[in-house]
């Protein structure tokens, strides 16, 4: 079947089997390998992307379900000139990543956390991250980074 969607503002299309998951569409058909697969039970969140602006686990969404919709991946956050998004910068400045495998998912779910909360405190951030697992950082610096990004971005959102 044919799916057509917008990925990071670009129109994309592919012919896929119905059983193709959104994460496979992104990685295998579009070559966008920033989105990672860390489990097979919707538990780890490494595959998190934004679908119409909201975080979803792209391993639990069929490509067909994303047809006609808008997807944002980790590749779509920095400016065209390579300038990192304030959230990406906050992750770097706060050492919120080590091996970096969970990072795209962490960043994308954090985009939703930032968008959905006018104010943030540590508990809210931790609850927002509950569906994303990290084995390296102990979350301490990820939480700091999201709070710092909120501070930095303030009214932008």
């Amino acid at each position: 079947m044919r799916v057509e969607l917008t990925v990071n503002g670009q129109n994309k299309a592919a012919d896929v089997e119905p059983r193709t998951l959104l994460v496979h569409l992104l990685r295998e058909d579009f070559g966008m390998t920033g989105t990672n697969v860390g489990c097979d039970t919707s538990s780890c969140g490494a595959c998190t992307v934004l679908l119409d602006g909201e975080s979803v686990k792209s391993c639990t969404v069929l490509a067909a379900q994303a047809d006609g919709r808008s997807v944002t991946t980790i590749e779509g956050l920095a400016s065209a000139d390579g300038t990192l998004h304030p959230l990406q910068r906050a992750f770097q400045e706060n050492h919120a990543l080590q091996c970096g495998y969970c990072t795209p998912g962490m960043v994308m779910v954090s985009m939703s956390i930032l968008a959905e909360n006018d104010t943030l405190d540590e508990a809210t951030v931790r609850e927002g991250l509950e569906g994303n697992l990290c084995r390296c950082t102990g979350y301490h610096n990820i939480v700091k980074a999201v709070l710092a990004a909120k501070e930095e971005m303030g009214a932008e959102l």
């Binding site: 679908l51 939703s112 927002g128 509950e130 569906g131």
Partner: peptide
Amino acid sequence: GDPSVRHA
């Protein structure tokens, strides 16, 4: 679940 699950 978690926020991403609740979005879908």
